[in-house]
Design a binder for these strands. Sequence first.
DNA 1: CTGAAAGCGCTTACAG
DNA 2: CTGAAAGCGCTTACAG
Lengths: 341, 341
Amino acid sequence: MTMKTCKQANVVEQIAKRLNIAISTVYAILADRKSCYASQGLKQQVKKLAAELGYRPNYIAISLKKGKTGTIGLIVSDMHAETTLARLEHMTKLARNDRYHVFFGCSYNNPVLEEELLEEFFYRRVDGIAIAPAKKGVENRFLRKLVEMRFPVMSFTRVGNTDIDYVSTDYFAGGYIAGEHLLKMGYERLGFLGSEIATIAVEERFEGFKRALVDNGCRIDDSRTLFVDTDASIAIEAGSKRLLEAGVDAVFCTNDRVALIFMRKAMEMGKKIPQELGIIGFDDSDIARMCLIPLTSIRQKIAETTGQLYAALKKKIQGEKISCKLRIKPQLIVRESTKRR
Amino acid sequence: MTMKTCKQANVVEQIAKRLNIAISTVYAILADRKSCYASQGLKQQVKKLAAELGYRPNYIAISLKKGKTGTIGLIVSDMHAETTLARLEHMTKLARNDRYHVFFGCSYNNPVLEEELLEEFFYRRVDGIAIAPAKKGVENRFLRKLVEMRFPVMSFTRVGNTDIDYVSTDYFAGGYIAGEHLLKMGYERLGFLGSEIATIAVEERFEGFKRALVDNGCRIDDSRTLFVDTDASIAIEAGSKRLLEAGVDAVFCTNDRVALIFMRKAMEMGKKIPQELGIIGFDDSDIARMCLIPLTSIRQKIAETTGQLYAALKKKIQGEKISCKLRIKPQLIVRESTKRR
DNA sequence: CTGAAAGCGCTTACAG
DNA sequence: CTGAAAGCGCTTACAG
C-alpha cells in the first residue's frame, strides 16, 4: 500500500473512476453488502485496488452518518488514587474488545472541572460515559441532566441526590470488615483517620466501621475520629499525632497512604506495631506490601467492578433500558500491622 | 436549556424556520463570523433561541468538514511503568488546554498490539500520536510509515532504526550518574540487574553505567551483569541471588521494583545495607521512599519531557515542519541505600 | 449585506 | 441487479 500524504481523499472516487462504475457500487462492494450483486471479478478488482491504495473508511464520516462514534469517555476524580490506573486499564481493554476507544479525563475532585469534562465528552458525541464522581457537596447539574435524558452513564460510586446507576465497591462493607478485624485481633480503643472527607466512598467506610463497633457492643469515641480535610502529608501527620495522644490502640485509615504516614508517626513516637498499635489501611496498594511493617488492608475488586460497570454501560449504549445499582464486597488482606494475636 | 432526548438534531434548522431566515445565516451568527452583517436584534434572537434549545455544534460534523478531530492518541507500553500515569496526566492536561482530548491505549510491550493501536488511532483520524514504543526487536512498519508520511508523531524514546522524533529521558546519563554515584560512595564490585532487556531505555541505562565505570578506570565483570527477561518477581529474585553470590557490593537496578526485590533478597541473605551492599534504583517511585531502607534512585523529569514532547507534537499538528530529538537528563536522589560514607 | 449551493466521506433507502 | 439521490451537521466560497 502506498500512502504518500496524510490525505487519502477520494480513494473511493478514484476506484470508481478507474473501474468505470458508480461510487455507491464501490462502497457496496467494500462493505460486503448482501444486496450487492456485482460479479466476483469486479468485486475482486475493487478490493485489490482498495488494498493497493491503502483505503480505510473514514471513521469520522461513518460516525456522523451513524450517530455513533465508537467512543467512551472515562472521567476519574484523582490521578493518584489507587483505583485510577486499574480502572483505566480495564476500561481500555474491555472497550477495545468491542472496538470502542476511550477518551480520558480527570476532574481532580473539582466539581467545576468535572462538569466541563462531562460536557466536552458529551458534545464530542461519546457513546457513553463512565465516571468516578468528584467530591460530593456541589451538585453536578449536567450529570443529572445526562441521567434524566437517559444518556448512557455509569458511575463508580453512588451519587448523593442523583438516581445515577453505578457499580461500586461496597465501602460500607469495607469499613465493617476493618472494624470487625481489629476487634477480633483484640484491639479495644479503635480510632478512625480519614482524608478527603467530602467523598461518599470515605463516608461509607466510616459508617461501616462504626456499625461494626456497634454490632460488637463497642462504640467509637469522638476524640478518636479524625477527618483531615486535605491530602497534604503534614496535615495527616498532625492528625496522626492527635489520634495517638487520644490513646487509640488501633486505627482504620481511609487509604494506605494515610496509613503509612500514620505508621511513620507512630513509630517515631515509639509505638510498637502491632503489639501496642494496630493499623489497617484501604486499597491494598503496592506500598502496603513494601512498607516498613507490611500493612493489613482492604482490597477492592477493581477488575470485577470495572467489568460489571462496563457491561452495564455497553447495554445502555446498545439501547437496553436497564437500571443497575451494584455493590461489590472488598476483601480483607491481613499482614503484620494488625497481628496482635 | 431543555434537552429531552439524546438527539438534538435539526436545532439549527428549527431556529432558521422559526425566525424565517436561512440556515447558513444562523450558522454565521452562531459562529460570530465577521462577514455576517445581520442586525443586532436578529443576532440576539438567534443566540437566545440557540441557548434555549441547548444548541451545541456537532463536533463530529466539524471534524469531518475540517479534517481535524481535535484528538491526540497516547500509546504507552506498560501500564505499571512508573512513567505511565505521569505521562498520561500531563498529556491530558496540556492537550485539554488547547481543546484537544486524548485517546488512551497500551501496547503491553507487544509489537503486534502496538501496530494495531497505531492503525486504529490513525484511522480514527487523530491529529497526532504520542507513543512510548514497545520493546525493540520487531520493527513497527506502520510507525515507520507514519513517520515517512510526516504524520505528527512523537516518541518518548528514540526508536532503533527509525528516524522518529522524540523527547526522551537521557537514560544513558541516568546510568552514568548511577555508576558514578556508587563509585563515589566507595563501592568497588559493581553489578547491574536489569529486566525488560529488549527495551532501548534499559539498554541505554546499562551503556551509561558501563561508561561511568570505564571513565573511572573500572570495568564491569560479566558475572555481575544480569538481564532477566521477564517482569516476574521470582525470576528477579533468582537473579538477585546469583548476583549476590557473584560477590557484588553494589548494584544498579533498572527500576525501583527490581531494586526492592533485590533488597529483600539481600536482607534475607543477611547483607547489611548500605554498609556491605549499596543499591540504587531507577524512577524514584513512591516505594523508593516508603520501603524498608529508603532507596537511592534516579528521577526522570516526566513533566518536562512530556511538556516538550507535547509542544513539538502540537507544532507538527499545526503544520510546522520541525524535527525534534531531545534528551533530558534525569536527577540523582540519594537516600539510605547507598550511604556507605 | 444575505442566502443558495457545494462538499467533507460515508450510508441508506429508492428509482430504474 | 446497479446507480443516482438524499442526508448526517457543519463550513466555505460564491452568487445575487
